[in-house]
């Protein structure tokens, strides 16, 4: 077990290093001087030189990379060119919206998908199963931002249950904040829940045809009990993989959904930074999102080991 965790941890660190190098190189190597891009076509030579010095562009590439990574390790993400505030502070404020949104929608995804997938698998081939699979087929195909717009029309404009956009802020208490995140979270979760429910169902059906389920039935377990006690945990392995991938979709998808609901999250920040050509902020936000994805994959791999004793013993 220790060996498994250490190996995974090592690969986590290596992935982070590789990802940071990749992001750094993309910004470096792609045509154009970052400072010139940031200032636009009409930049004055002296402003350009000042910005180049501020960004450290006069230094060798390796030094700049190390300075960037070293800074991030201390929580120093540099200073935003447009906002003139530390990027770390900017990101911190926006993360207070984006992270809860991603977690909220992940929770919804799992809470919807698990029962639906299990229920459909247990009734494979029935009318109920066919109906559910048809609905999830629609759910997979629906663009989440369009679904969000439809929900705004229905729940905010017509029924007036929710506000059409904006974020109440955490300082006003938990409930108003959660309420303003509810529609965005549902919009993000529905397509992902449809995918996960389908994965759950097919993973369960795959395990149900395994020999050990037949063994369990020969002991006297009913179909339903064999599914619960033997198939479910085995089906969790592919399901966990998908959940890990979905978290990254939810984080990234949040960027779009925030646009629909005018939420002050990372998505708004990243688009504002792009239009202001604030590469320092873009670079840091991308690194942060990638860090989150890699971290979640690491957690998923730990979860594998909890589920599967074969991994714990280390092959």
């Amino acid at each position: 077990m220790t060996r498994y965790i250490l190996t995974r941890l090592l690969s986590l660190v290596l992935s982070l290093v590789a990802a940071s190098v990749a992001i750094f190189l993309v910004i470096e190597i792609l045509p154009g001087d970052p400072a010139a891009i940031m200032l636009g076509v009409n930049a004055q030579p002296d402003t350009l030189a000042a910005l180049r010095a501020e960004m450290g562009l006069d230094q060798p590439m390796v030094i700049r990379y190390l300075a960037w990574v070293g800074g991030m390790l201390h929580g120093d993400f540099g200073t935003s060119y447009t906002y003139h505030t530390p990027v770390a502070k900017l990101i911190g404020d926006r993360l207070a919206v984006s992270l809860p949104l991603a977690l909220f929608s992940l929770l919804l995804t799992v809470v919807i998908a698990f029962p639906v997938g299990i229920w459909a698998a247990a009734r494979r081939g029935s009318a109920a199963d066919t109906l559910i699979m048809g609905i999830t087929q629609l759910g997979v195909a629906i663009p989440n931002f369009w679904f969000a717009m439809l929900m705004v029309v229905l729940f905010a404009i017509n029924l007036r249950w929710f506000s059409a956009g904006g974020f109440a802020g955490w300082d006003k208490g938990l409930l108003p904040a959660l309420k303003s995140l509810t529609l965005p979270a549902v919009a993000l979760a529905l397509p992902q829940a449809s995918i996960l429910a389908r994965v759950m169902r097919s993973a369960l059906l795959d395990t149900l045809s395994e020999d050990f389920v037949r063994t369990a039935r020969a002991k006297g377990l009913s179909r339903a009990k064999a599914l619960r006690r033997h198939a479910l945990r085995n089906a969790l392995i592919p399901v966990l993989t998908i959940i890990g991938m979905q978290f990254s979709f939810l984080l990234a998808g949040g960027i779009i959904i925030e646009n629909v609901f005018y939420l002050p999250g990372l998505g708004r920040l990243i688009f504002q930074s792009i239009s202001a050509r604030d590469l320092i902020t873009v670079e840091s936000v991308v690194m942060l999102l990638v860090f989150a994805v890699i971290l979640v994959n690491f957690l998923v791999e730990l979860a594998y080991a909890l589920v599967d004793p074969r991994l714990r013993s280390g092959r």
Partner: peptide, 11 residues
């Protein structure tokens, strides 16, 4: 895979 397509697009 650690970079969702949206993030690649953003970069």
């Amino acid at each position: 895979f650690a970079f969702p397509s949206l993030i690649i697009a953003v970069m």
